[in-house]
Simulated scan of single mutants.
Amino acid sequence: MTYVIRPWSDIANHYHGTAILGNGASIAVNPSFSYGSLLAHARTSQLIASDVERLFHFFRTTDFELILRIVWQASNVNKSLGIEDSRTHEAYLGVRDCLIQSVQAIHPEFEQVRANLPGIYQFLKRFDTVLSLNYDLIVYWALMYGYDQDYEHAIKDCFGAGGIFQDDWSRFRTPIYRQRSTTLLFYPHGNLALCRDRIEQEFKIHNRDSGLLQSILTRWRSEEVVPLFVSEGTWEQKVSSIRNSYYLSTVYREVLGCERETLVIYGWGLGDQDIHLLQRMRSTGIRRVAVSVYGRNQIFCNRVASIIQEALGAVPIDFFDSQSIGCLNNPST
C-alpha cells in the first residue's frame, strides 16, 4: 500500500494529546546519537575490558544500567560485611568508567544543541503529555528553556523538592501562578538525569543547562548512585527492568494507562523490543495516530501501520514528513 506523507502543518491541529519521542528525535538534533547503543560504541571504541564483557555475557543482556547496578550492589554488600573482594569493586569501576566514557563520547554539550531548544520547546508544548524514550538530556534542556522563556505554559516532569518523583503526579496538570496550560513529561525508559542510591531511593539530579551533564557524571563517579535508564535489551528484559523501578513502573502502569484520544510518534522505529509500550496504551481511547517518516520511506510506513493497528486496533494513521516545518527542531518561524 502507498501512503500519503504530508507536512506536519497539514495535520498538527488534530493532535494535542500524547507524543512519543524515539531515537530519531535525538539524531535530528545531533548526529552523534545515530549510534543509538552505548554498548555498541563502547565495543567499537575498545573501551570494555574482558571482565566486563563476561558480565554482559553471563547475565545475557546488553543493558549497561542493569550490569552497573548488579556489580555496584555486589560491591556494596561486600563492603558492608567486610568481605575482602577487590575484583568485584574493580569490575564495578570498569563498567562505570566504560559507561561514562561512552556517554562523554556520544552526548553533545549544551552549547552544541542550544540553538535547537526553542523549536523543540514549541513542538512539545502543544501536547498534553510527552513520553521521551531517549536517555539523553535534550528534552530536559528544552524543559528548562521553557521555564526561563514562557510564563504562560510549563512543561513539568513531576519531580518535586529534592528531585523526588511525586506520587500524585497528575496534580501537575493544573496550571499555577501565571500559567495557562501545562505539558507533563515522562521517561518510560529512564534518563541520564535520573539515578538511585544504595537504598533504592530514586531521584533526579538537578543543575542548570551546561553544568547538568558534568554534574551527572560527577555523581556517578562518587560511587553514591547509579543511573536509572534502560538502554538496551529485549522487550522481556526491558519490562523486567521497568518493574524493578518505582518511577518506571509508575509511568508504565499509570501514565501509559491514562485516557488519550490522539497519539503522535516522532523518531520511534517501533522495534520489537519496545512494542510493550504501545500495547499498554491499547485501551486508552486512542482514535487517531500520526507517525513521522524520514525520507518518504514507504516500506517503513507499511511496517509501522501493521504494528500500530495490531497493537491498538483499527485506528486511522496519518504519516508526516519528519523534516517539515514545525517538527521538533524545524521551527515554524
Results as ranks from 00 to 15, higher is better:
R253Q: 14
S241Q: 09
N302D: 15
R253A: 11
F300A: 03
I27A: 07
A19Y: 04
I138N: 02
G326A: 09
T333D: 14
N297L: 03
I265F: 01
S215Q: 14
C195R: 02
R54N: 13
P188E: 10
I83P: 03
Q201G: 04
Y187E: 02
L278T: 10
G22W: 04
Y145A: 14
T183K: 06
Y187G: 01
L328C: 11
D318M: 11
D10K: 00
P188M: 09
F300Y: 15
V255E: 04
L131W: 08
S283I: 04
N78A: 12
N191F: 00
L81C: 14
S322N: 12
I155Q: 07
S9M: 04
I275D: 08
E202Y: 12
I27K: 09
K125W: 02
I83A: 12
S181H: 09
Y177P: 03
S292M: 10
V239A: 15
R96F: 07
L192H: 08
T61M: 03
E84M: 02
C195N: 03
L117G: 08
G295N: 05
R287P: 02
Q104L: 14
T218D: 15
N23F: 05
D167A: 15
R303M: 14
S86R: 14
P227V: 05
G211N: 11
T183E: 01
A91N: 07
S240H: 13
Y294I: 07
N30E: 02
L263A: 10
N116E: 03
N13A: 12
S86D: 06
V103G: 01
A290W: 02
S102I: 02
I176N: 10
S231T: 11
S37D: 11
Q46Y: 08
R43I: 04
T88H: 14
I11T: 00
I164D: 06
R243M: 13
D150A: 12
W220F: 15
I155R: 08
F110S: 05
I275C: 08
Q237C: 01
I164R: 15
E202H: 14
C98K: 04
L99T: 04
P108A: 11
H107E: 13
V29D: 11
F110N: 06
L39R: 07
I100D: 11
W268H: 05
N191D: 00
N13F: 10
A49P: 06
H107V: 13
